[in-house]
C-alpha cells in the first residue's frame, strides 16, 4: 500500500508527462500542416514528370536501345534498398513499420540468393536495421540539420544513387518510405526506382500528337531519368515528413489520453486512502472515548 505522499508524487509526475505529450502533439500538428502543404506542392512536378517520361518511353520504341536507368541492367542479382525513416522517435509505429517492411524484403531477397545493400536515410532506420544488416549498410544520410527539405537535398541523394548505379554496384533499386494517407493512417510503401516502373496501360492515347524533340529522345531521356530519381526521392522524403508528424500527432494524442486515465485512477486511489485514514483516526478517537 503506497503512502499518501507516494501517490501525490506519482500524480504530479504523470501530470508533468501529460503536459509534455500535449505540447508535442500540438507541435506535431503545426508541423504536419506545413509538411502536408510541402508534400502537396511537390505533387504537380512529379505528376508532369511521370507523364512526360511515359510518353517519351513510348515514343522511343522497342527497336532502339533504351537507357539503362529505364530498362535495367538485365540482371537482378544485387538489390539496393533505400530506407527512408525519421530522425527522431516518439512517433508510434512509424519507424518500425518502415524498417519491418524493408527487413522482410531484404530477408526474402537473401533467401533467393540475391545480394542486398542498404542505404539508410534517417537515423532511426539505421538504428533498427543495424543489428541484422550491419555489413550491408553502405551509408547513412543524416538529415537532422535540414529544417525544410529542398530539391537540392534530394538531388544529392539521387546523384549518389545514379553514380552507384553507373559504377555497377547494384541492379535493382527500391525505395522504402511511408505514404501519407491521413493523420491516422500511413502506409509503408516500397517503390521501385531502377529500372523505372512506368505505368503500363493505354499508351495509345499519348502518341496522338507527333512530338518534335530537341535534342533527340535519347538525350532528353538521359537528362530526365537521373532527375526523375531525385524527384522520386524528394517526394518520398516529403511524404515521409508528413507521415512522421501525423504518426507523432496520433501517438502523442494516445499518450495524453492514457496519462489522463492514469491521473483519474491515481486520484481516486489517493482520495480513497485519504478517507480510509480519516475514518480510521475517527474510530480510534471514538473507541478511546468509549473506553473511559
Amino acid at each position: 500500500m503506497p503512502s499518501l505522499k507516494d501517490l501525490r508524487n506519482r500524480i504530479a509526475s504523470v501530470k508533468a508527462t501529460q503536459k509534455i505529450t500535449k505540447a508535442m502533439q500540438m507541435v506535431a500538428a503545426a508541423k504536419l500542416r506545413r509538411a502536408q502543404n510541402a508534400a502537396e506542392a511537390a505533387r504537380p512536378y512529379a505528376e508532369r514528370m511521370d507523364r512526360v517520361l511515359t510518353s517519351l518511353a513510348a515514343s522511343i520504341g522497342p527497336g532502339a536501345q533504351a537507357p539503362a536507368l529505364l530498362a535495367g541492367t538485365g540482371r537482378d542479382d544485387v538489390h539496393l534498398l533505400i530506407v527512408c525513416t525519421a530522425e527522431r522517435g516518439l512517433c508510434g509505429a512509424f519507424n518500425s513499420s518502415i524498417a519491418r517492411l524493408a527487413r522482410d524484403t531484404a530477408n526474402s531477397l537473401m533467401a533467393q540468393g540475391k545480394t542486398v545493400k542498404i542505404i539508410c536515410i534517417g537515423k532511426k532506420g539505421f538504428d533498427l536495421l543495424r543489428r541484422q544488416f550491419e555489413k550491408q549498410i553502405l551509408e547513412v544520410v543524416d538529415l537532422r540539420g535540414i529544417r525544410s527539405l529542398s530539391f537540392a537535398d534530394a538531388d544529392t541523394i539521387g546523384r549518389k544513387i545514379v553514380s552507384l548505379y553507373a559504377a555497377g554496384e547494384f541492379d535493382v533499386c527500391t525505395l522504402f518510405f511511408s505514404r501519407f494517407k491521413s493523420v491516422i493512417s500511413q502506409i509503408p510503401t516500397a517503390q521501385r526506382l531502377i529500372p523505372l516502373g512506368l505505368a503500363e496501360g493505354e499508351p495509345a492515347a499519348a502518341p496522338a500528337a507527333v512530338y518534335d524533340y530537341e535534342p533527340d529522345e535519347e538525350q532528353i531521356l538521359a537528362t530526365l531519368l537521373p532527375r526523375n530519381i531525385s524527384i522520386q526521392v524528394l517526394r518520398a522524403l516529403l511524404e515521409n515528413a508528413a507521415s512522421e508528424q501525423g504518426a507523432r500527432m496520433s501517438a502523442m494524442d494516445n499518450a495524453s489520453r492514457n496519462a489522463g486515465d492514469m491521473i483519474k485512477k491515481q486520484t481516486m486511489k489517493y482520495n480513497r486512502s485519504r478517507q480510509a485514514m480519516i475514518t480510521k483516526e475517527l474510530i480510534e478517537i471514538i473507541s478511546g472515548a468509549e473506553a473511559l
Binding site: V210, Y211, E214, P215, I220
Partner: peptide, 19 residues
Amino acid sequence: SGTEGEFTVLKDHSPMMST
C-alpha cells in the same frame, strides 16, 4: 532558352519537347 537555341511559344505551337 532551349539547349539548341531560343524559341518563342505562341498558341497552337506544334508539340515538342526540349531541354
